[in-house]
Design a protein around this nucleic acid. Structure first.
Length: 256
DNA sequence: ATGGTAGCCGCGCTA
């Protein structure tokens, strides 16, 4: 079973790339972030025509998340039940007995800003919810754009980014606390190429110079991590014309 | 050189 996460930065613009990538990659489940589309214009038919069921939580202009699955999606929940939030950043569903949570963690803008405080509160509430979910669902996946580079090896220039947004100690601590609930970073279960990143700033030729950060993650509960066989970043997608600034991140495991 | 690029029912904001 292949599970992927991709911040598409506008599903309207990226729909053709998404459909192409689905056809080539054949993932079983896909978590999308920054769809930036509200219900009336969400491309349900195009996604279903590609062979996927879809559940989404959308808003105009900002945020928006969706779950795609080749098999039936049940028990769809939008948002964190213990953290009411008008921003559409979370959607969860069950596929083949796996509970899957798609997350778009707030960016936080700058350390010390109001948006940074919101990010840390949002993450604390996510921990509470995921803890509850793990107790009820041993097979759980938490995937999405975390807007956190967990470690210096996930940062192209750790000295320049030290203490900055996406890399600050409170953010990294929040990430580690999620892992301590019983999740594992699938990407780090395997040997990986040095300088592996999932996001590159559009500006300053960030991708061409591989000035990136690894901020998109597929976290697997311990039971699933034990069955994980492959984890990778589909970096080539970032080379396309008019790309998202994020590449898809993929994990494969024995469905059991 | 405190920049730059992309997306959005935009006229600045978010990333």
């Amino acid at each position: 079973m292949i599970v992927a996460t991709w911040n598409v930065n506008s599903l309207k613009v990226r729909l053709p790339q998404l459909l192409d990538w689905l056809a080539v990659r054949c993932p079983d489940v896909v978590c999308l972030q920054e769809t930036k589309l509200d219900a009336p214009v969400f491309p349900v038919q195009a996604i279903e025509a590609a062979g996927y069921r879809v559940a989404y939580s959308g808003q105009k202009t900002y945020n928006g998340v969706a779950l795609l699955s080749r098999e039936e999606l049940t028990d769809v929940v939008c948002g964190n039940p213990v953290f009411p939030d008008p921003q559409k950043r979370l959607i969860a569903a069950t596929v083949r007995g796996l509970r899957i949570v798609c997350a778009y963690v707030p960016n936080g803008q700058a350390v010390g800003s109001d948006k940074y405080a919101y990010k840390l509160e949002w993450l604390a509430a996510l921990q509470r919810w995921i803890g509850d979910l793990l107790r009820a669902n041993p097979c759980l996946i938490l995937a999405g754009d975390f807007n956190i580079a967990p470690d210096d090896r996930d940062v192209h220039d750790p000295a320049a980014w030290a203490g900055q947004i996406l890399c600050s100690e409170p953010e990294r601590s929040a990430f580690q606390q999620l892992l301590r609930l019983g999740l594992q970073d699938s990407f780090r279960l395997f040997e990986q190429p040095a300088k592996s990143y999932s996001w590159w700033d559009y500006r300053m030729l960030g991708f061409q110079k591989n000035q990136g950060l690894r901020i998109d993650h597929v976290l697997l509960s311990d039971a699933l991590a034990a069955r994980c066989t492959v984890a990778a970043i589909d970096r080539d997608v970032r080379k396309l014309a008019r790309p998202s600034d994020h590449a898809p991140v993929v994990a494969e495991f024995d469905a059991g």
